[in-house]
């Protein structure tokens, strides 16, 4: 028969207590340690992700700055160089007017007026490209000027509609919104072969909703996702924290939708 020889010695009881305590301690410690380890790992991963986000944002920022600078340079060049050359041409035509027989006057007058129109257009174009002018005039006026330019040049028939109480946005945002629209408009002119263009700015309570539609040939949205124009419009909208989408169907035109929430300052 298997029996023990007597009650447990106090040392044996203490030994049992000791082993239980040690095992308990190590179990609890392992659990706490593993949990703390996981939390630390998650924190580290989150920090790394946020750092990457910040980096991407800064990259977009500097890209946009470079673009604006380039546009400014082009605007200056246009205004100064090309504008100057055309003025000179105008003067030359004046001189010519005085030196030719009157039967050619009509032709030369027409040429003169064309040259003057060109000078005007170049001035307007350079104004639109130049940031400072856009800032000074504001989003609405610059947009109106651009659409008027399209109408004048007979590219298509463009209308601008504004609804709601106009909320002035901060300067940087106005320029970015304007550039997004400008990119879209230039795409319309280049590819859409549209006859009508409709732009609606709706100043709602918490956000500005912009809808731009044309009745052109449209394009296949799934195919054009790699074009850098789309990418820039997208990244600019992201910079503003704005919702952005372009919907298009072949034969049914294209529609741009931007919803920009007002900044809370």
């Amino acid at each position: 028969m298997l029996t023990e020889k007597g009650p447990l010695l106090p040392q044996e009881k203490l030994l049992i207590v000791y082993f239980i305590a040690v095992l308990l301690f190590f179990t609890i410690f392992s659990i706490v340690f593993v949990v703390a380890f996981q939390r630390r790992k998650n924190k580290f991963l989150k920090e790394r992700y946020e750092a990457e986000q910040r980096y991407q944002r800064e990259l977009s920022d500097s890209q946009i700055e470079i673009q604006e600078q380039t546009l400014k340079n082009i605007a200056w060049e246009l205004h100064d160089n090309v504008g100057q050359l055309l003025s000179v041409a105008n003067i030359q035509l004046n001189v010519l007017m005085n030196a030719i027989p009157t039967s050619f006057h009509d032709q030369v007058s027409e040429t003169k007026s064309i040259v003057q129109e060109t000078v005007q257009e170049i001035r307007t174009l350079s104004k639109v490209l130049n940031n400072d002018v856009v800032l000074k005039n504001g989003l609405l006026k610059s947009l109106q000027m651009e659409l008027d330019r399209f109408n004048r040049l007979d590219y298509l028939k463009a209308t601008l509609k504004i609804s709601g109480d106009i909320v002035p946005l901060n300067n940087a945002s106005e320029i970015i919104v304007f550039r997004i629209l400008q990119e879209f408009l230039s795409n319309v002119i280049k590819h859409a072969k549209a006859s009508k263009l409709f732009v609606h700015l709706d100043y709602q309570e918490k956000a500005l909703e912009i809808v731009a539609e044309d009745d052109g040939v449209g394009f296949d949205v799934s195919q054009k996702t790699n074009s850098s124009g789309m990418e820039t419009m997208h990244s600019r909208a992201e910079l503003l924290n704005a919702k952005f989408s372009i919907v298009s169907e072949i034969g049914k035109g294209t529609r741009l939708f931007i919803k920009y929430p007002y900044k809370s300052t």
Binding site: Q11, L14, V17, F25, F29, A36, R40
Partner: peptide, 25 residues
């Protein structure tokens, strides 16, 4: 002394556990 041995050992473990958790963080 048995009780102070066990108690002492467990408290040393506690102190080292605090140190290791601190190291982890």
């Amino acid at each position: 002394m048995p009780i102070s041995s066990i108690l002492g050992t467990l408290l040393v473990f506690l102190s080292i556990a605090f140190y290791y958790l601190e190291l982890l963080k």
